[in-house]
Amino acid sequence: MRAELLDSNTLRNLAEARDFKEFLEILSKTPYGEELANAEIDVLELEQILNKKFLERLNKIIISSPKEISEFIKDYYIMGLEIKNLKRILRGKFSGMPSEWIARSLIPMRPYLSVNFEELLETKTLEEFVEALKETAYATLSESLRICVEHEVLWPMETRLNGLHVDRIEVSLMNLSPEDRVIVKRVLQTRMDIENLLAADKWGKEFGRQTPPRGYFYRIYGVPLEVLESLIKTGDLEEIIKSLGTPYYQILKPLLEDDVALVRRYLQRYIYEVLRKSKTRSDFAFPAIFFLLTSFENEIENLASIAWGKEQGVPPKKILKYILLPS
C-alpha cells in the first residue's frame, strides 16, 4: 500500500498543472486513476472520491491489522470522519439548510455507520439532533445544547465533539504497547496544545479579551490553562509562544503574522516528521501503519486543496505554500 502514496514530484506536478483539466489528467495516471476513469467531475465530487478512497484504504488496513491496532484506527480516523460529518449536519441544522444540501457535503462512511446519518438529516432542530444521538457515543452532546441555543453559537457542541474524540482515542491507546502509546500521545498532545493555543488567540481577538466560559478548552495537555488564559487576556502572542519553546515556537511562528493556515501546515509537517522518524520497525508494526495512514490523510487533503486551487487558477507558489510535500 505504501507504493500507492504519491511522491513529492507528482504532487508538485499536480500543483503546477495549467488548469483543473490538466490536474485531472495527471491524477488519472496515479493510483487514483481508476476512480477518475470516464468521469466529468468537479472539485466537490473529486473530494468525495478522495474521501471514499481514503476510507477504502482505512478499511483494508483495519481488516488486516491486529485487533488493538484496528480498534485504534477506527477510533482515531473513522470517528474523526464521523465527527466531521456530525459537525456538517450540526452547522446545516443550525442555519436551517435543506437536508439535501447538507447530505451532499457528507463524507461517505459505509461500512462504518455507528450513527444513523439519514435520521440526523431529517431532524428539524438542534434539540431533535441531540435527541437522535441519545443512544450513541455522542449522548453527552446534550450537555452543551443549552449554551448553544442561548447564545446562538455552535462552538460548545463542536468542542464537545472534539473532546469526545480525544476521550475515545485515550481509551483506545491504552491497548497499544507502551512505545506506541508514547508516539500517539506525542502526536495528540502537540495537536491539542496547538489547537488550544489557536482557540485562545481566536477567542481573545473575537471577544475583546474577555475570559471564555468554562469548557471552552475541553482538554488541557502540555500547555497549562493559565498560559491559555494569559494569551486571551494580554494577547501577548510573541512572548507566550517564545516561552513555550520547541516545537511550539517553530510551529506557531506564522501566527505572529496572523497566518493560521501556515501554523496548521507546520503542525502537519511536525506530526509527519515525528511519525516518519518513529517508523523504524517493520512495515506491519504500529508506527509504520500510523505513518502510512497519516500520509494518506495528508495526501487526500492536499489533493482536494490543489484541485480547488487549479479550478480557481491559484498560482502554484501559493498552493505549494499550504500543502505538505512528503519527504
Binding site: 466537490l44 450540526l90 452547522r91 446545516g92 486543496s305 480547488w308 480557481q312 498552493i319
Partner: peptide, 21 residues
C-alpha cells in the same frame, strides 16, 4: 479566502460558511 480553501478544503469551508445563520 484562497488561503482558507487551501488550508481547510472546499467542503469544510462551505460547511463552516453555512453555519452563519
Amino acid at each position: 479566502i484562497v488561503t482558507a480553501y487551501l488550508a481547510l478544503g472546499p467542503s469544510e469551508v462551505r460547511s463552516q460558511a453555512n453555519s452563519i445563520k
